[in-house]
């Protein structure tokens, strides 16, 4: 996947000169996903829903097949499938199934069925790699609009429900006693997750969406004393990973989506190391 190829695909619109640069669009797209995914990722981590994010994201490839089959926008198809998958998983987990196994089964079968479905659908030859690992350098202005629109919706949703989401995350009973319906908050989270998957597929691809949820959040944990601080720091890490990963992929001529995730992982490593060092020091002080 060389960057040279991509430039040709992205030179159509004129309106705002700055957005004509594919790199600027890529940077903005990555930033949008990073900023929206990270705070949501915190909730996913706190609620131990890592696999849940995986299953939802992997189902997105099935959404791609659906979009191609019915000639819909990729965003719509992916959103519909991600939402259905998230709802299904959410309902099953409420019914007390052995979730880790079930989610593993669903995550992987979703991607397998998705790949098979895509191969059935198209007379058109599509670049599967673009959906599996993202194609951030091919982001057009419409894509950008969808990404930032979706990211804004996720952030608004999270800010609006934040207090209730946190309470329900701590304890469903505590939420109930305060008149909060934890089922409804779980639905909010499910919706936000589906939205993030739908906007992130173009940027990092189905295989690595969960990474953008989890890794910045995990890296932020040692530096935060409140949930809000962790969400903010995670958003910063997410943004830095997106921009830095993009830059690195240009320098080293590497695929962009995986480069973004690599940088996030390096940040996580650094954060863990600093945390370890700090713990060591405070243990010595005692």
């Amino acid at each position: 996947m060389t960057t040279g190829m991509r430039i040709t695909t992205t030179t159509t619109m004129e309106a705002t000169p700055m957005l004509d640069d594919f790199l600027v669009r890529a940077a903005l797209a990555g930033l949008g996903v990073g900023l929206a995914a990270a705070p949501l990722g915190c909730l996913v981590v706190w609620r131990r829903m890592a696999y849940f994010g995986d299953a939802t994201a992997h189902a997105a490839i099935l959404g791609v097949a659906l979009s191609l089959a019915f000639d819909m926008s990729i965003f719509t198809g992916v959103l519909v499938i991600a939402l259905s998958m998230a709802m299904l998983v959410s309902t099953l987990s409420g019914k007390g199934y052995a979730m880790d196994t079930l989610l593993g089964v669903m995550a992987h079968s979703a991607i397998a069925f998705g790949l098979v479905a895509v191969s059935f659908v198209s007379g058109v030859r599509i670049d599967l790699m673009a959906y599996l690992f993202g194609d951030i350098l091919a982001v057009g202005k419409t894509d950008l609009l969808v990404i930032w629109g979706g990211a804004a919706m996720v952030l608004v949703l999270l800010v609006w429900r934040w207090q209730a989401l946190l309470t329900a995350t701590l304890s469903p009973d505590l939420a109930r006693a305060s008149g909060i319906n934890p089922e409804r908050e779980r639905l909010v989270l499910t919706l936000a997750l589906a939205l993030v998957v739908a906007v992130a597929i173009k940027v990092v691809g189905t295989l690595l969406i969960a990474a953008m949820l989890l890794i910045p959040a995990a890296a932020a944990r040692p530096f935060a004393r409140t949930p809000e601080a962790m969400a903010l720091i995670a958003a910063v890490f997410g943004g830095v990973s997106a921009l830095g990963g993009l830059q690195a992929s240009l320098w080293f001529d590497t695929p962009t989506g995986p480069s973004v995730v690599c940088l996030a992982a390096l940040i996580f490593l650094g954060a863990s190391f600093i945390d370890l060092l700090r713990r060591g020091l405070s243990a010595q002080a005692k």
Partner: peptide, 16 residues
């Protein structure tokens, strides 16, 4: 959950 940083002060502000 150990991944959730929560000060006492912040906890007291939940849900209001």
């Amino acid at each position: 959950d150990p991944t959730l940083p929560l000060s006492v002060r912040r906890f007291l502000s939940l849900p209001a």
